[in-house]
Amino acid sequence: MPDPALIAHRGYAGVAPENTVGAAVAAASREDTTMIELDVQPAACGTPVVIHDERLEGDPSRSRAGRPLTDATGLVWETALADIQSASVLGTDETVPTLADVLAAVPDSVGVNVELKHCGASDLRFAELLGPDERAERRALWTPFVERVVADCDAFGGEILFSSFCEGALAAAREVGPEYDRAVLVWDALESGLELARRYDCEAIHPPRNAIAGLPLAGTEYAGFDSEAPAIDIVETAHEEGRAVNVWTVETWVQYDQLAAAGVDGIIVEYPGLRRGSDPLSR
């Protein structure tokens, strides 16, 4: 069985300032990195910027060793691009980049998983299955931003994979950039994730690490799932339908070993070197 693809979560956020050019370049320099995962949302002018949280100072419920995400404040999509680009990330010299800047800095030998995190709307309908009328409305809401993202990705020569928890984002991605692969991110319900994957012809599905049947990890609470065993074998079902399974977010080599043995296709990891036999410090 081949090793799963190693996907660097926010550019290996466990060892580098997340979602920055420096993190992406360092991740790309490792021979074992298959793909870099990053998050995008719009600045006030609509330019796609690479940042996870809705607010520049970060979500206080998300632990980053007590540090604010950046030294700026305010909602990302209400902030001028220049102010976002000058914001220091986690007390380092790295600043919040545009998507175009990150894609220009990494070689096309490494793929990029672009998570469509936010479009600047107040209600994203996170991880919900929508009715037909709502789908059209949400697709239209996301389309202007996704058009900007696709335009940036068109200038990149490597593999691009769009992913999202939001149905509107997946619908817009299929309409605006049908040539790019898509993946549904799963939160709290494998059935809903599979339905979205089918609805939008997604090439992949991204469940959390505790949603893989038969593993000790499945007995832990994470990402909206409780400690009950998964009712669906997501690896078997996805593979029968011709979809890849990329699991998030893995923090230890023990977790990596369990998921690799379960036959997943990719593992989104917080740290480099989790694959057995690799050097965590080598580049």
Rank of each mutant, 00 (worst) to 15 (best):
D201C: 12
C202N: 03
E203Q: 14
E203M: 08
A204S: 13
A204E: 03
I205T: 06
I205C: 06
N210P: 03
A211G: 03
A211V: 05
A213M: 09
A213L: 15
G214W: 02
P216A: 07
L217P: 03
A218Q: 08
A218E: 11
G219Q: 12
E221A: 15
Y222E: 07
Y222T: 06
G224L: 05
G224F: 08
F225V: 10
P230H: 10
D233G: 07
I234Y: 03
V235E: 02
E236Y: 00
T237C: 09
E240H: 05
E241L: 15
R243Q: 08
V245N: 01
N246A: 12
W248E: 05
E251A: 13
T252F: 01
T252H: 00
Q255Y: 02
Q255S: 13
D257P: 00
D257F: 00
Q258I: 12
A260R: 13
A261L: 12
A262I: 01
V264Y: 04
G266T: 12
G266D: 09
I268C: 00
V269R: 00
V269L: 03
E270I: 08
Y271C: 11
Y271H: 15
G273A: 11
G273Y: 07
L274V: 09
R275N: 03
R275M: 12
R276T: 13
S278Q: 02
S278R: 12
